[in-house]
């Protein structure tokens, strides 16, 4: 971006102002937004939350703008998009614009597309040597046989765009499989299959926020094989295991996500990733504001670092204008 067009205001101490934009969905959980905004106001000079329903994209005379009440949103220092997979058509367009702008965004369009696709996530991570479960993807009952040959029963079927444990089914035999597949293919859904790990109704969530990692263990309610809190499960905060921490950081790096939540299960051969979340919830009942605080601190740290670079460039430019090209650097000074 042209520095002249985006002249940033300086604070009395000479440092550049910092600004944060948070974009959320229409049906955004207000508690999480509130916590993020509360933390953001402690660190950022300008903080704005914009519901995605209020955003306009305009393509005109060769320019593509992301607008809210006439303001070009790409002029902010950082943006944290908190998007679910619902209504993704417009969200993908927004992320595409953010990707190409100068604004810092901790997650990209590609990260959104891959992390919201349960099989694609596993595939990318697996190829990078990150431990995951053997998984398959198919679109028809006819193709399911290859997966059954691979995994045997019981098998876990996942609709690739499901979340919060929805669209995840445990199938015990061929009859159950046929019934489910016939229903699912009627709606042209895509199905990922994995081997079921017996005796495990708990998993681990590792939030990765920059280089910081926060961990919790989730346990499903009695009789429920999924561990999601939204399905009646509970959580306990943990000290991150060094090995799982390293895997979680690796997974986020592979998917190019500076903020994510990595879900693991224990298998006979060690922990394996089952999914990576683009829009992780903060488990407020167990962690208070720790996750939103860490998110905002990370965003602020990145903006400060980027501003330092911009600040130096602006100062050097000023010196050159004042003294001409004969300005010496410290390395060549006598």
């Amino acid at each position: 971006m042209n520095a002249a067009k985006t002249r940033k205001k300086k604070k009395p101490n000479g440092q550049l102002q910092t600004s944060l934009l948070i974009i959320g969905s229409r049906k955004y959980k207000k508690a999480t937004v509130k916590a993020l905004l509360e933390e953001a106001r402690k660190l950022f000079d300008v903080v704005l939350f914009v519901p995605i329903s209020k955003i306009k994209i305009v393509c005109d005379k060769g320019e593509t703008k992301l607008l809210y009440k006439g303001t070009d949103l790409t002029k902010f220092d950082a943006c944290y998009p908190r998007f679910s997979i619902n209504d993704f058509v417009f969200k993908e367009a927004v992320l595409k614009i953010l990707d190409k702008s100068d604004i810092y965004v901790p997650v990209s369009l590609l990260a959104y597309q891959i992390s919201n696709h349960k099989y694609y996530t596993v595939k990318e991570l697996s190829h990078a040597g990150v431990p995951t479960l053997v998984s398959s993807l198919f679109t028809s009952p006819e193709a399911a046989q290859e997966s059954i040959n691979e995994f045997g029963f019981p098998i876990v079927l996942k609709l690739i765009s499901g979340f919060a444990g929805k669209g995840v089914m445990l199938i015990h035999d061929k009859k159950e499989l046929k019934s489910i597949l016939d229903t699912v293919t009627l709606y042209e859904e895509f199905i990922s299959a994995q081997k079921f790990i017996e005796g495990v109704n708990s998993d681990y969530r590792y939030w990765v926020i920059g280089k910081k990692v926060i961990a919790a263990k989730r346990t499903g309610k009695k009789g429920e094989w999924r561990a999601n809190i939204s399905r009646g499960g509970s959580a306990a905060v943990l000290k991150p295991d060094p090995y799982m921490k390293a895997i979680a950081l690796d997974a986020s790096r592979v998917l190019k996500m500076d903020i994510s939540a990595v879900d693991f299960i224990e298998t006979p051969t060690g922990p394996a990733i089952i999914e990576v979340n683009f829009m992780p919830g903060p488990f407020k009942d167990y962690l208070g504001n720790e996750v939103p605080k860490a998110m905002v601190e990370h965003l602020h740290a990145v903006v400060k670092r980027r501003n330092m670079v911009k600040g130096i460039s602006a100062e050097v430019k000023e010196l050159i204008e004042k003294f001409g090209k004969s300005v010496k650097t410290s390395s060549s000074a006598e």
Binding site: K54, I55, I57, V58, C59, D60, T64, D87, V89, K91
Partner: peptide
């Protein structure tokens, strides 16, 4: 497969488009 995304992709690559507005909420 995503027409708004295609339009943005074309626009950002400098392909000439007619003036276009894209919104999630039609009332905008």
């Amino acid at each position: 497969s995503n027409e708004p995304l295609q339009l943005i992709t074309l626009s950002q690559a400098g392909v000439k488009l007619a003036k276009t507005a894209i919104v999630a909420d039609p009332r905008q």
